[in-house]
Computed example of a mutant assay.
Amino acid sequence: MVMREAIGEHSKRWAVIVFFSLIVGEGIVYGFEAAESIVLALAGMLLNLLLYSALHRLEGKVYNRAYLRLGFDILYEFLSGKRGAVRQFWDIWVVFALPFALSKRYVSPTHFWAFTLPTTLTGALLTRHMLNWKGEM
């Protein structure tokens, strides 16, 4: 168990380092255009945190009939780690990338593969660690 916790701490540090390195690198390469990506990445993190905290407050009520119809039970189980790490990470990444999808801006393929995709993936990993879920990576 101690080894697993050490690996978890190690991966948190690397996620933070990679995330901020990508943001700084994008700022150096693309200049002011990178500011929008930074805002979108932070918005994705905030969206995940707010969604998780709202669903956590509804924890006992999520399984009531009205909330079941809206799919809150499935989303709560994904975000709280009850359905496995891969499905949970996928759900967090989809919510994290939502501001990028809604921004309606053109991004060159190089910008997308070099910065946007890695930023969203490491940001989703960092968000997953920030919430200190029960499910282990």
Rank of each mutant, 00 (worst) to 15 (best):
K12V: 13
W14A: 14
W14F: 15
V16Y: 13
F19G: 06
F19A: 09
F20W: 15
F20S: 08
S21A: 15
I23T: 11
G25A: 11
E26T: 00
I28T: 08
V29T: 14
G31Q: 01
F32N: 14
E33Y: 05
A34T: 05
A34S: 08
A35C: 08
E36N: 06
A41I: 12
L42Y: 05
A43Y: 04
A43T: 12
M45C: 12
M45F: 15
M45I: 09
L46T: 06
L46G: 11
L46Q: 06
L47P: 05
N48D: 03
L51M: 14
L51C: 11
L51W: 04
L51K: 05
S53R: 05
A54E: 04
L55T: 02
H56M: 07
G60F: 02
G60S: 06
K61F: 13
K61T: 04
K61H: 08
V62S: 04
V62C: 08
N64V: 01
R65Y: 02
A66F: 09
L68R: 12
L70R: 00
L70Y: 01
L70G: 05
L70T: 04
F72Y: 03
I74E: 13
L75G: 01
Y76W: 12
Y76E: 07
S80A: 09
G84E: 15
A85T: 08
A85M: 10
V86P: 03
R87P: 15
R87K: 13
W90F: 09
W93N: 11
V94N: 02
A97Q: 00
A101S: 14
A101P: 02
R105M: 03
Y106Q: 06
V107P: 03
T110V: 12
T110D: 09
W113F: 15
A114T: 05
A114G: 04
A114H: 03
F115P: 01
L121D: 05
T122Q: 07
T122D: 09
